[in-house]
Design a protein around this nucleic acid. Structure first.
Lengths: 188, 188
DNA sequence: GTTGAACTACCGACCGGTCGGTAGGGAAAA
DNA sequence: TTTTCCCTACCGACCGGTCGGTAGTTCAAC
């Protein structure tokens, strides 16, 4: 039994029941240990949550840096970024759901630390849109709003996406990026 | 002290701390009653949550029926629907946040009942998009995906919108609808 | 005198977390 | 090769405190 086994089991239960509704006993049962034994591996329930969030965010930041630093055009960067992000959200739903929903339950100090890093992540998305506007391929939209919109569409997936649905992750992300790039209206 | 005072106070605290992190004592303190006295007005903590969700959803369904039943063109229906919905989300953030985030904490039976009604609400959005596609003013996008996307952008607002921000609710919704209708790319 | 709204006092269950202790395996000392 | 020692992983029992909820009572308004 390793620390990461516990973290992973916790993520799964946090996702299903939420952080506060999950007891340390629940986690202990999942890894077939006594509750006390868990404290040999982790400091506290808060630390478990924090670790889950950090791990998830690190993964995403790595993904995004690669896309932003590539020499693709803004349009392709956006498409690729969405492919990768949707892939992560659908691929590890436990991690994703906890990341997006449960960070609220971090105590203040840890939450602040996490928010800083999350803002840094979102700034990478912002950069892609800025680039597109600067190069004249994107209309001069409000950058912040566009970023929020793009994050929102994708993040909200965690509330409705179910594995084995009608569309694959790739089809979903392509639908999204097409929608964002071309809009709903037919050509004028 | 009325029942609705208690419900409203609870919504406020649920929003800030989450359902499970909120104790009946917290709610009692907020309305300056003893915890036991609250049970004179409500059946249980679950019932409080359920009432909040029902009230919020009823409001939204009423809004949406008016828009769908109007004789506006699909493009204007979408614009108006987003204006109204964003107005609600920003106007009563407590209700909105609890509606979108805390319904997960309903016990199974109540959650199922709620989900049915929420699906009925989302079907109204779907209808607008369908109408646009049928009339040939919207491209023939995947209707489900487009609906999820539009709901997602707006619903995700509850995570970042703060009163007194740079843009008004109306400006926000107009930015959103413009983005959805015309897309990011400049005219070809 | 009935009623509704509030109170005090309490319940059993469970919470996150800590305690002292131990089984067992690997390394160092004899 | 045997003995000693230490360390990791784990355990059962327990801590003070809080949880949602209940029982029974008081009291003012009608």
């Amino acid at each position: 039994m390793s620390r990461s086994d516990i973290i992973q089991a916790a993520a799964q239960i946090f996702r299903k029941k939420g952080f506060h509704a999950t007891s340390m006993q629940d986690i202990a049962n999942a890894v077939k240990l006594q509750k006390a034994s868990i404290y040999h591996h982790v400091e506290s329930k808060q630390e478990i949550l924090f670790t889950i969030l950090e791990d998830a965010l690190n993964l995403l930041i790595g993904d995004m840096r690669a896309v932003v630093d590539s020499d693709l055009k803004p349009k392709e960067k956006l498409r690729l970024a969405m492919q990768v992000y949707v892939g992560r959200l659908t691929g590890d739903a436990d991690l994703a759901t906890v990341l997006l929903l449960e960070y609220r339950n971090l105590e203040k100090k840890l939450r602040t630390r996490h928010s800083v890093r999350r803002d840094r992540y979102e700034a990478l998305w912002r950069k892609i849109i800025e680039e597109g506007v600067d190069q004249g391929v994107f209309r001069s939209v409000d950058i912040s709003i566009a970023t929020f919109a793009i994050m929102g569409v994708q993040n909200w997936m965690i509330t409705w996406y179910r594995e084995g649905g009608r569309l694959s992750a790739l089809e979903l992300s392509d639908n999204f990026s097409e929608l964002f790039l071309s809009g709903l209206l037919v050509e004028k």
